[in-house]
């Protein structure tokens, strides 16, 4: 009966997995594309460029993603002018709200991560580049960004996994993602172990694939920078 319940729920899990993957990819793509320029702005010494980025990442990183999701999903509908606007069919879809919340979140974290890596670069590298007479743009493109992105790899791996796990919140706003499938199965058959462990196993597999990919990337791009550190033991 237990196995039968899971077999019956298999299509549910399959479509849930597909939903989860689409949410993840869309959020990461949008978030990552926005984060790169924002990180550079965040590190410029010009206060009026830096401040808005700082405020944005501050507010987003300071509030739970569930709150942001609920503000978009339930909160927007409180205002009549939003409901009457031409954009409402888009704004009101659960897909839009979920992807927007996840992408904004990912963008804020990635921005801070990159900015942190940029600031933490050894001063010698930057001083050397400056001594070579590189412009600020050249310095960013040739020295700072490639090095910062390498140093970000382990942290960005964490971030991608965090967003994958964050997509489980989509089940709270009616989207049938992987977690939604598990909750539906638990509610239908009252089998908490089977339902959630099945979902956990699939998430585990997804995470394992992501982590392996990032480990390979670290070996490829980061290991040369850490030759000293690896031997500490």
């Amino acid at each position: 009966m237990n196995a039968q319940a899971l077999i019956d729920s298999l299509p549910l899990y399959a479509s849930g997995l597909w939903t989860t993957l689409r949410l993840l990819l869309a959020s990461l793509l949008i978030g990552g594309c926005l984060a790169l320029p924002l990180a550079v702005l965040r590190c410029l010494p010009t206060p009026w460029l830096q401040a808005p980025v700082r405020a944005f990442t501050y507010v987003i990183r300071g509030t739970p993603m569930l709150v942001q999701l609920f503000l978009l999903y339930y909160g927007l509908a409180q205002f009549e002018f939003v409901r009457d606007s031409v954009l409402w069919p888009v704004l009101s879809s659960a897909w839009f709200c979920a992807i927007a919340a996840f992408a904004i979140n990912s963008c804020a974290y990635t921005t801070e991560m990159l900015a942190g890596a940029i600031r933490a670069l050894p001063f010698g590298e930057i001083e050397a580049a400056q001594a070579f007479g590189m412009s600020r743009a050249q310095l960013m493109r040739r020295i700072v960004l490639p090095a910062a992105m390498r140093h970000c790899l382990p942290a960005y791996g964490n971030e991608v996994v965090m967003i994958l796990h964050g997509t489980s919140l989509a089940s709270v706003v009616t989207l049938m993602d992987l977690t939604g499938a598990a909750r539906e199965t638990n509610a239908r058959y009252y089998l908490p172990f089977e339902a959630f462990i099945a979902a956990a196993a699939i998430y585990f597999l997804l995470t394992f694939i992501l982590v392996s990919a990032f480990r390979a990337a670290e070996r490829r791009w980061l290991a040369p920078l850490r030759r000293d550190a690896v031997n500490i033991g």
């Binding site: 996994v161 796990h165 489980s168 977690t179 908490p192 172990f193 979902a199 956990a200 394992f208 982590v211």
Partner: peptide, 11 residues
């Protein structure tokens, strides 16, 4: 680190 907080918590 491979399982979402929400799923672990429900479990």
């Amino acid at each position: 680190r491979s399982v979402p907080d929400l799923v672990l918590m429900l479990l």
